[in-house]
């Protein structure tokens, strides 16, 4: 039985297309929650939720503060708020200053998820035009979690994966089309 308890994903520029290619490959019986922080700039996260649902075999929902984080569900961070994971597997939100020019910030999600899930966490950093997420990914690895970075040469914008590789390094550096299979393997076997 897998010891993985959650997946966290971060992406920015080009992230929507990347998610539309990764999510369809997820196993519909995935026994862990998937939490996504994607900077979209769109004020309305419900559109993003709707869009991703078309491509995802698991239910997709906006992450709501205080709500329990259920396995087998894909959660998306709302626009304009940092999304944090509490150690009792509930979400919380805040409107603290931007981190790495971003709110929601991938660093904030990864760091709090690492504190909550420790070695059970798989974090995925993909395409993007800034370095948000790199320090968060380091926190994930320091806590014993598993870091996946999209191969920069397969990324629409390579700044984010390159920063991740430089600051944190990766347990697996994969082209976009191999990421879903890796997540299934890590969490299902």
């Amino acid at each position: 039985m897998s010891t993985r308890s959650a997946i966290a994903m971060g992406c920015s520029a080009g992230g929507l297309l990347a998610l539309e290619r990764v999510l369809p490959g997820l196993d519909p019986r995935l026994p862990v929650p998937v939490v996504i922080c994607c900077h979209t700039g769109s004020p309305d996260v419900s559109l993003l939720v709707e869009l991703l649902q078309h491509h995802c075999p698991l239910p997709v929902a906006e992450a709501r503060e205080r709500a329990a984080i259920d396995p087998g569900t894909v959660y998306v961070a709302p626009t304009g708020y940092h999304l944090l994971v509490e150690s009792d597997a509930h979400f919380s939100l805040n409107v603290d200053a931007k981190v790495a020019y971003s709110r929601p910030s991938i660093d904030v999600l990864f760091e709090t998820a690492a504190a909550a899930w420790q070695g059970g966490l798989v974090a995925v950093l993909m395409t993007g035009a800034n370095s948000d997420g790199a320090h968060g990914l380091k926190a994930v690895r320091d806590a014993g979690g598993y870091a996946v970075i999209q191969d920069p040469s397969s990324a629409e914008v390579d700044v984010m994966p390159l920063a991740g590789l430089e600051v944190a390094g990766a347990d697996a550096c994969l082209p976009l089309d191999a990421i879903a299979a890796e997540l299934n393997r890590l969490c299902m076997s």
Partner: peptide, 8 residues
């Protein structure tokens, strides 16, 4: 809420 407090 603990996670935000810790960051602050």
């Amino acid at each position: 809420a603990p996670a935000s407090l810790k960051r602050r």
